[in-house]
Simulated scan of single mutants.
Amino acid sequence: MKMTREQLHDLVWSMPMTKIARQSGVRDQHIARACDGAEVSRPRAGYWRKVENGKSVTRMALTNDRYAASDVVTINASGWTIS
């Protein structure tokens, strides 16, 4: 799985990580670690439940303090890297 930080941010805010993991063939823990390491904000516990129940939710913005939005994040079975 290879994408820019911006694409990863959009992806993790569009569906639960367990679903992303199933579709991409990597573990959801690897995706979570890549998000944390690459400073990509991700939904916290309870976010998707609120979405399901029609509650108001806030999507956090992608910050570009340390990495650029165009930096590429690679996630595979052995972990993740950013370039």
Rank of each mutant, 00 (worst) to 15 (best):
V26Q: 07
Y67E: 01
V40D: 01
G54K: 04
A61K: 14
A61Y: 08
L11A: 09
S83W: 10
N64R: 08
Y47C: 01
R33W: 11
I20K: 05
Y47T: 00
Y67A: 01
R66D: 01
T63P: 00
T74F: 11
W80P: 04
G46N: 02
T4G: 07
E6K: 12
I75S: 00
Q23S: 09
K55H: 13
V26M: 10
G46I: 01
S14N: 07
H9Y: 10
G25S: 11
D36M: 09
W48R: 01
L8E: 02
S78L: 09
A68C: 08
A32D: 02
S70Y: 10
V57R: 02
I31P: 00
H9N: 05
D65Y: 15
G37F: 10
G54M: 05
R5H: 07
Q7S: 08
V73I: 11
G25E: 08
Y47F: 15
R59P: 00
V73K: 07
S70E: 15
T74V: 13
E39Y: 12
Q7K: 15
D36I: 14
V40G: 02
S56M: 09
S24M: 12
R66L: 10
R5D: 04
A45Q: 14
R33M: 09
Q29E: 07
R42E: 02
M15A: 04
A21S: 07
D10S: 14
T63N: 12
T74C: 09
M1C: 03
L11N: 06
N64V: 06
V73N: 02
S56N: 14
E39W: 10
M60G: 08
W48K: 00
A21E: 03
P16S: 08
R27I: 05
D71K: 10
A38M: 06
A61H: 13
E52A: 06
S24H: 15
R49D: 01
M1I: 01
V26E: 05
R22E: 14
S41Q: 10
D36E: 11
S24Q: 13
R49H: 03
P16M: 09
I31M: 03
K19M: 15
K19N: 14
D65W: 14
N64M: 04
V51C: 03
N64L: 03
R59K: 15
T18N: 07
A45K: 15
L8R: 02
R42Q: 07
T81A: 14
S70L: 06
V73L: 05
V12I: 14
E6G: 02
V57G: 00
G37H: 09
R59L: 05
M17A: 03
G25D: 05
Y67H: 11
W80N: 04
M60T: 12
Y47L: 05
L11E: 08
T18Y: 10
L62Y: 06
S24W: 13
M3W: 13
A45Y: 13
S83N: 15
G79H: 07
N64Y: 00
A32M: 06
M60N: 13
G79R: 10
Y67D: 02
Y47M: 04
V51F: 06
V26F: 12
R42Y: 07
R59C: 04
A38Q: 04
T63D: 09
V57E: 02
